[in-house]
Design a protein around this nucleic acid. Structure first.
Ligand SMILES: [Zn+2]
Ligand SMILES: [Zn+2]
Ligand SMILES: [Zn+2]
Ligand SMILES: [Zn+2]
Lengths: 161, 161
DNA sequence: GCGGCGGTGATACACTGTAACACTCCCGCC
DNA sequence: GGCGGGAGTGTTACAGTGTATCACCGCCGC
C-alpha cells in the first residue's frame, strides 16, 4: 500500500485511472500490456510529475531492470492515447484523469512549492488564443501552456493569516 | 556580411538589437562584456532559434574555443535582462526586439516548416488566462506559452491557390 | 599591496532523449 | 504443422542539453 494523502491534483483514484486506461485501450483495439500498465500505475501513484528515469528506477527491482528507453516507449503510447501528459518545463509526466476532447486547450498549473500539477481548461482562454493566432496569420498545430506559481493550498500554508 | 533575407520574425536589424542591449546594460549599471555581445550577436543574426551548443560552435574558431557553459552563462544574463527568450519546446533561444513590460504575457509562434519564431501578445489572451488562474485559485509566477504550427508565409507557399 | 567580487576558462558530470539491432510472442496464412 | 510479419520489449550505445566545481584574471576599493 502506498501512502497517498488526498490533495487537489488527484481527483481520481489510481484504480480508476488504471481502469479507464484499460477501457480506452480495449475500445480502440490497442494492447494495454503489463509494462504499459506498470508505467501508468507509477505515474498515477506518484502524486506529482515524474521523470522518465524516476519511473524506470521505481519499476526496477533487483533482478528485473526496466531501462529508461522502455519507459519512454510506454509513455509515448500513453500520451498518444491521452492518458498521460508531458510537462515540458519539468521534463516530466503526469496522469490525465480528464479525457479531453481532441484539440481541447489545457493549462498546466505547476506549484513550485509542493510540485503538484493541476489541469485547467477554459473556453474563454481558448477563444482568446484562437483570435490572437488568427490575427497573426498563424495556423496552430500544437500548443504548450504551462504556468508555474503557487497553488491555493500552499499559499494558505505560507500565510496562515 | 551575413546573408539576411527579410522575414517576419525580424522586425529589427542586428545592429539595432545590439545597440539596445548595450543601452539596457549601461542604464542598469551592468556589464555588456565582449562575450555577452558575441552571444547576443549570434542569436540576433541567426534568423531562427539557436541552441546553446550551436552558438558555442559558431563563436569558436581554431585557437579560440568557447565552451557551452560560457554561452549558457551569457544567455542567462541576457534572459534576465529580457534581451533574449528561451523557447522551451525547442531548447533554443531567440532575440527579443520588443522590450516587454515586466509580467507582460507573450506567445511564441513557432513555424514547424521554416523554423522562424515570432512573438505575439494580446490583452484579451492575458485577461483570459488571469481569470482562469484566479478561478483555479492559482497565483502565477511564470508562464510558458508556445504554439507550434505554420506561419502565414509558409502556408501560402504550400498552397499557391 | 590586498581582499573581494564579477566574469571567464576548463573539466567533469548529470540528466534527458533517441537510434539501432536482436529477440520473443502472437496471429494469420499456406 | 510450417512460415512470415508485425507489435512489443530488452539491450547497448550514443546524442543533446544543462550544471557543479574549481581555478584564474582583472578591476576596484580599502
Ligand atoms: Zn488532461
Ligand atoms: Zn502547492
Ligand atoms: Zn520578446
Ligand atoms: Zn514558416
Amino acid at each position: 500500500m502506498h501512502r497517498h494523502e488526498s490533495h487537489d491534483a488527484c481527483h481520481t483514484g489510481v484504480g480508476d485511472m488504471l481502469a479507464r486506461a484499460e477501457a480506452v485501450c480495449r475500445e480502440r483495439g490497442l494492447q494495454f500490456t503489463p509494462l504499459r500498465r506498470e508505467v501508468m500505475e507509477a505515474v498515477a501513484e506518484a502524486g506529482k510529475a515524474q521523470g522518465a528515469y524516476d519511473i524506470a528506477e521505481k519499476l526496477s527491482a533487483p533482478g528485473k531492470r526496466v531501462a529508461p528507453v522502455s519507459v519512454y516507449r510506454a509513455l509515448d503510447f500513453l500520451m498518444q492515447q491521452g492518458l498521460v501528459h508531458r510537462i515540458a518545463s519539468r521534463n516530466a509526466f503526469i496522469p490525465c484523469a480528464h479525457g479531453h476532447a481532441p484539440g481541447e486547450g489545457v493549462v498546466f498549473l505547476i506549484c513550485r512549492t509542493c510540485g503538484l500539477v493541476d489541469e485547467a481548461s477554459s473556453e474563454e482562454l481558448e477563444d482568446g488564443l484562437d483570435r490572437t493566432l488568427k490575427r497573426a496569420g498563424f495556423t496552430p498545430a500544437h500548443t504548450i501552456l504551462e504556468v508555474e506559481g503557487d497553488c491555493g493550498a500552499c499559499r494558505e500554508r505560507q500565510q496562515p493569516s
